[in-house]
């Protein structure tokens, strides 16, 4: 061939690398701006104490968001996160109250999370219930069940040192934040370096083609929901440790923050595209907005409005960036 098949290499590749990370760079800029604005508005914002708060709040969103990223990349969605976290926390609190030894209570919660997630996955993958509907059902049922079982009252249990430790700090960092960071590493690894991670992208990119490539599409779909349930259980443990009681109304609206973080992070709701790093930045953005607005002390209804606007703007910038780089059709 007279034409080189891989034409102007170096430049084009660098350009593409940059274009591929426009979204992350943009989010980084947004976070820096948010820090500047909130730091100027409320003096307490930049304090070490508040940074620890941001980390702790971030963990609540982040752990579930890592799993949600896989779910959304696979072309699905899990909106049952908030009620599932609350329900699992309540069940664990009941177990502690009996009292069941802590390890067994926690394992019980984890198994429950896996089962509930798998249930959503089976509904989607085997019975072809759209995932939005399947998890909407869980969302409603789990919240209702938790409220019914507890009469909307907190479920208390005896103090437990280990659980207290989980709710506390190590080396000045919240344990939950440390768990979040470790899990982030695990999810980055899974999504980039394992055949499973690859398959998740393939199924979300084109399920027909994935099927032809010998990928077990059904299994991948069930697995991503099971993982989402597992992460809900871990979030529930963090929540239980932090609050010291099981609360049926806890984590309300968490699914909103989690999905917002993933989408702000550049993951496409139509599947097949997204990254953990993007979600990490998305989680930071969402958390910083929440924390900054609370510290500034504006009306909590107005907070929701501002948050909504910032989320949409972030995604708009994201789309604009990818269009500029020619990625968008």
């Amino acid at each position: 061939m007279s034409v080189p098949t891989v034409s102007p290499r170096g430049v084009a590749e660098t350009r593409r690398m940059l274009a591929g990370h426009m979204n992350e760079l943009g989010l980084l800029a947004i976070i820096v701006i948010l820090y500047g604005v909130f730091g100027a508005l409320s003096p307490g914002f930049l304090s070490a104490n508040n940074q620890v708060n941001i980390l702790r709040d971030g963990a609540t969103i982040g752990i579930a968001a890592w799993a949600q990223t896989l779910v959304i990349v696979a072309g699905e969605i899990d909106i049952s996160v908030g009620p599932m976290v609350a329900f699992i926390a309540v069940i664990m609190a009941f177990l502690m109250k009996v009292p069941v030894p802590l390890p067994f209570a926690l394992i019980g919660g984890v198994v429950l999370g896996l089962c509930l997630g798998s249930l959503a996955g089976v509904l989607r993958a085997i019975f072809s219930v759209p995932s939005f509907v399947a998890t909407l059902g869980l969302w409603s049922a789990l919240r209702g069940l938790a409220l019914f079982m507890t009469n909307a009252l907190p479920v208390t249990f005896d103090d437990n040192d280990t659980l207290d430790w989980i709710g506390d700090n190590v080396f000045g960092l919240p344990v939950s934040a440390v768990v979040m960071v470790i899990l982030f590493g695990v999810f980055v690894f899974v999504s980039r370096k394992t055949a499973f991670g690859r398959s998740v992208y393939a199924v979300g990119g084109n399920a027909n083609a994935a099927h032809l490539c010998g990928i077990n599409v059904t299994r991948i779909r069930i697995l991503v929901f099971a993982i989402s349930g597992l992460m809900a259980a871990i979030t529930a443990i963090m929540l239980l440790a932090r609050l010291g009681s099981g609360n049926a109304g806890a984590a309300s609206g968490l699914e909103f923050d989690v999905i917002a973080a993933v989408v702000v992070g550049g993951t496409s709701l139509s599947g097949g595209r997204g990254s953990m790093l993007g979600t990490l930045l998305g989680v930071l953005t969402i958390t910083v907005i929440g924390d900054g607005l609370v510290l500034y002390g504006i009306n909590s209804f107005v907070q929701d409005v501002v948050r909504g606007v910032i989320i949409v703007v972030a995604v708009l910038l994201n789309v604009a960036a990818s269009r500029r780089s020619g990625r968008h059709v």
């Binding site: 055949a195 690859r198 398959s199 992208y201 393939a202 990119g205 084109n206 027909n208 083609a209 994935a210 032809l212 490539c213 010998g214 496409s268 599947g271 097949g272 595209r273």
Partner: peptide
Amino acid sequence: VAGIFRTLPVSQNITAAVP
């Protein structure tokens, strides 16, 4: 419909059947 993973890199498309 059944061949390409439109959003994924060419490299992943080529190696999709040989993990």
